[in-house]
Amino acid sequence: MSPALRKYIKYGLILLLSVSLILFTQEIKLIKNPESTPVTSMTFAGLGVLWLFSMIGIAISNFLQKSPVKFIREFPILGWVSITSLVLCLVSDFFVQAIQAVDFLSITTPILTFAGLSVANRLVDLRNTSWKVAIVAVFVFTGTYAGSALLAQLGLLLSGN
């Protein structure tokens, strides 16, 4: 088996894990609250579509590693996947319908579970971080979010929306 193929099989399996976790979360959500998004055959189609779009995005990103333009080489995979999804969703409404049968909040819980696990060894690094930077961090995060929100509010007001 060629190394490139092995790599894609690995990505495919990890993405399969990701969509399985989403399905699992959506099922649990249904047990907790029967009113939430139901799991139908469209949900399975939607999960398949999410898997496919992700693979296409990975392939585009890998392919463009040969590009002479630094900006294109360094453009994140996440961005390619969003663009792929946007283009294909504009092309066919089926993709939109299928994806919307997947509950949004069910996608987020597994991601943050993974994120929490991935930083487990970093907690130690906090000791090397001064409390001053921690205070600054609060203002930095506040600054970017409040700054953008205020400008957006102003913009929406001016455009009469």
Partner: peptide
């Protein structure tokens, strides 16, 4: 990669 379906 776990995050990709969200972007998709």
């Amino acid at each position: 990669f776990i995050m990709l379906p969200l972007m998709a």
